[in-house]
């Protein structure tokens, strides 16, 4: 299932970049190279729900508009501050406790914090993030944890226990 999906995505990307649809030899070579890439991914043990979170995709599509709206707010905020004077910012570091353990969800949450108004993720620790906040409001906004709830619903429940150690590549 995941193999077929990965193959289709790779083939779509190849077709997009090359723009070849009618020459049989070139399309055949593209299919062969996509198959080779899928085989390599199989050998690298990249075929599991951490690297291909198919189950989370529909909920992510609902999350995306909210994220884009947050980015618009953030850019307006940062634009006002870059045209204003230096006293418009009071930078500080904040430690934000994080309960999510799923690696992909952690990445997504860190990226989302970076993209929302006035905050940038500086360091990701085991159970908390180090976040740089520009203002007082931004600090309050990142500490109330509403974004973590939004990200947490996208993760499959069985994966909450801890990072999957069996997915580590052992030589």
């Amino acid at each position: 299932m995941r193999t077929i999906l990965l193959f289709l995505v790779l083939l779509g990307f190849w077709l997009l970049l090359s723009g070849q649809f009618d020459k049989a030899f070139l399309v055949g070579s593209g299919i062969v190279s996509c198959l080779l890439a899928v085989y390599c991914c199989h050998r690298l043990k990249l075929m599991n729900e951490i690297y291909q979170p198919v189950e989370s995709l529909p909920r992510f599509l609902f999350y995306l508009p909210w994220l884009i709206w947050q980015i618009i707010l953030a850019s307006l905020d940062v634009t006002l501050r870059s045209w204003g004077t230096a006293s418009a910012i009071q930078p500080r570091f904040v430690k934000v406790p994080v309960k999510i353990r799923h690696p992909l969800a952690q990445t997504l949450l860190a990226n989302s914090i970076t993209l929302t108004p006035g905050t940038v993720t500086v360091d990701v620790e085991e159970d908390h993030y180090l976040v740089h906040a520009l203002t007082d409001d931004a600090e309050k906004g990142v500490l109330d944890g509403s974004m973590e709830k939004r990200v947490a619903v996208m993760v499959p429940a069985s994966k909450e226990a801890g990072p999957d150690q069996s997915s580590e590549v052992t030589p």
Binding site: I71, A74, S75, V78, T79, R81, S82, I89, P91, T114, L115, P117, G118, V120, V122, H132, L134
Partner: peptide
């Protein structure tokens, strides 16, 4: 650290 904000969002 403040310079990260415009680089990331704008």
């Amino acid at each position: 650290y403040s310079r990260l904000h415009p680089a990331g969002t704008a």
